[in-house]
């Protein structure tokens, strides 16, 4: 392992980290702006032009607020909860291909932190671990409402992970690989997976909403029943971590949706650009294409939040176990038959 490789990877990791953080920051701003737009209001407009400095002001506020901790015998776990939530939210970005490659300093630089064979499984592993942050935090708060929120979050995530995994199997049968880079490369030239696997995409989208605890699946923190859900007892930057982790998760799951189903960094005419304009320009444009797709999904998340009311708890379980899982299994069967007939 030469030092140039280590420097290259460190730079890529730092850039991805910074990008995730900045996107999570500005998602909070965008959420308020979108909410304002949908409700015919103005939204934050005091700090900076169009309220662009609002996330910084919010961050400053969260950092400088009083640190309150409840009377709990589990002080350590109370701190560990938000830490797990935040680190798992950031870990997923390691395997996402942000672009094809850049040719700089006589080296081909892959725009990806690591290209492992089992990238998709890695994402599932990290997502399934993410629920610990909520569970441990909610339990260590020593509060009934927090515990209720944590238990709800756990059962919701476990139920929807099953449907998510099954919907992925149909996609994997088609792509034949778990590497996100290869999946992206296969979708070159408008050969997007969403056209071949619309049902799989739909199930994955619904499960992504459930996994990120967004409305209509935000039962873990529904204000009207559980005060604040699992982060009722948290204050200051610890609560900020939970909120921030949610936005980071939203960004990452939008990225995964774009990579798996919407062609990743591919855009129409990419091959032509690579041949005629140059590798670097074409791939920077590819990164921008992926970025636009991600922003589209983030907007979709916010749009849904202000459109669809929250599910009732039994409706949520019903949808997960009795609708999505059978649908996903049916989708696998149909995909298998189609593969046998047409390939």
């Amino acid at each position: 392992m030469d030092s140039a490789f280590i420097i290259e990877k460190s730079v890529v990791i730092l850039v991805v980290f910074a990008l995730t953080m900045i996107m999570a920051m500005y998602s909070t701003w965008a959420e308020r702006k979108v909410a304002a737009f949908l409700q015919d209001r103005v939204g934050p407009n005091r700090a900076g032009w169009g309220g662009l400095l609002q996330p910084l002001a919010d961050g400053l506020k969260l950092f400088s607020k009083e640190e309150f901790s409840p009377n709990t015998p589990n002080k350590f776990l109370f701190v560990v909860g938000p830490a797990i939530a935040m680190s798992t939210a950031l870990m997923t970005s390691a395997v996402i291909p942000w672009g094809d490659k850049l040719h700089l300093f006589g080296r081909d630089i892959l725009l990806q932190a690591t290209d492992i064979d089992n990238a998709l499984l890695y994402i599932f592993a990290v997502v399934s671990v993410g629920v610990y942050g909520i569970m441990i935090g909610g339990w260590a708060s020593n509060n009934k409402f927090s515990l209720m929120g944590a238990v709800r979050a756990a059962s919701q995530m476990v139920s929807y992970e099953v449907a998510m995994g099954l919907s992925m199997i149909a996609l994997l049968m088609m792509t034949g690989t778990l590497s996100l880079r290869e999946i992206s490369a296969q979708q070159a030239g408008m050969n997007w997976n969403v056209f071949y696997q619309p049902v799989s995409f739909l199930i994955f989208l619904i499960c992504a909403f459930a996994e990120t605890n967004r409305t209509p699946f935000d039962l873990a923190e529904c204000e009207s029943e559980l005060i604040g859900g699992y982060h009722t007892e948290y204050s200051s930057m610890k609560m900020g971590f939970y909120l921030f982790a949610e936005y980071a998760n939203m960004f990452i799951s939008s990225a995964i949706l774009a990579v798996l189903f919407f062609g990743g960094y591919n855009y129409p005419g990419m091959q032509w650009m690579v041949e005629n304009v140059g590798v670097n320009t074409a791939n920077i444009l590819g990164f921008l294409a992926l970025f636009i797709k991600i922003c589209g999904f983030i907007f979709f998340y916010m749009w849904v939040r202000w459109t669809i009311p929250r599910f009732r708890y039994d409706q949520l379980m019903h949808l997960g176990w009795k609708v999505l899982i059978p649908l996903a299994i049916l989708n696998i069967m149909v995909t298998g038959i189609c593969l046998l007939l047409f390939k």
Partner: peptide, 10 residues
């Protein structure tokens, strides 16, 4: 870690 222990804790 992701399934069995989550259910255990749950």
């Amino acid at each position: 870690s992701g399934a069995i222990m989550v259910l255990f804790l749950f």
